[in-house]
């Protein structure tokens, strides 16, 4: 319930107007959105119980590892009700053709796969916020294993407690076993954005670039 309460309001995309090239505009709009979402995500992470008890080094390491995963849980969740479109924001639905034109065909495919998988699992909002926090916590510590394990255990216990009120056997395990797909999806998205930046010179905001480079 704490995670549900601290869930940030979704951001709207600000349409880029700096170019008449619609594919480039899509990409620039998306990168601006991601940069602002990252700011919100860092503020959100601080509110997850146990996160602030981690050392600064471990906080950085978890965010550098899990930020794209956490953001993609939201995209996949927002896209549950739509047909083929991915809802990067409420006002930024992108279909396969738009993603392909923007050089993000493989990102579309991967995130769509994740969306379909989550849809089949019929996630509840409680599960979504917990998965998001777990995506952030699901990393190796640089600094202090004990405090990271306490952080992870707290989330795990919350999920188990929630699932114990439901009837589906093995649900906790199934949710946890969906995390590798999420990581794989996030890796593809990070690689695609880095490629757009390095090979095609797409300008990327400082924070987003710093977080992408941490994964390069």
């Amino acid at each position: 319930s704490h995670l549900l309460l601290t869930e940030p309001a979704p951001l709207a995309a600000n349409q880029d107007n700096s170019t008449s090239d619609s594919s480039l505009r899509t990409l620039l709009t998306l990168c601006d959105l991601l940069n602002r979402e990252l700011l919100v995500l860092i503020g959100w992470a601080k509110q997850i119980p146990g996160f602030s008890e981690l050392s600064l080094v471990d906080q950085m390491s978890l965010l550098q590892s899990g930020w794209m995963e956490a953001l993609l849980v939201d995209v996949a969740w927002r896209s549950q009700a739509t047909g083929e479109e991915l809802m990067f924001a409420g006002n930024l639905p992108l279909d396969e053709a738009q993603c392909r034109a923007a050089g993000l065909a493989d990102v579309y495919e991967a995130v769509r796969h994740l969306t379909v998988r989550y849809r089949a699992m019929k996630l509840s909002p409680d599960e979504v916020v917990t998965l998001k926090a777990m995506a952030l916590a699901n990393s190796d510590p640089v600094d202090c294993l004990d405090s990271l394990q306490r952080f992870q255990d707290g989330l795990h216990e919350a999920l188990q407690e929630y699932e114990s009120t439901r009837r589906e056997q093995n649900r906790t395990g199934r949710l946890l076993m969906s995390l590798p797909l999420l990581r794989q999806t996030a890796d593809r998205a990070v690689q695609a954005l880095l490629r757009m930046h390095h090979q095609h010179g797409i300008p990327i905001h400082k924070l987003l670039l710093e977080m992408l480079n941490a994964k390069a």
């Binding site: 700011l39 860092i42 503020g43 601080k46 509110q47 600064l56 906080q59 950085m60 965010l63 550098q64 400082k206 924070l207 710093e210 977080m211 480079n213 941490a214």
Partner: peptide, 15 residues
Amino acid sequence: KEKHKILHQLLQNST
């Protein structure tokens, strides 16, 4: 750490 300057600063700022 210099490479991750912005994240470092954002985490150090109080909410």
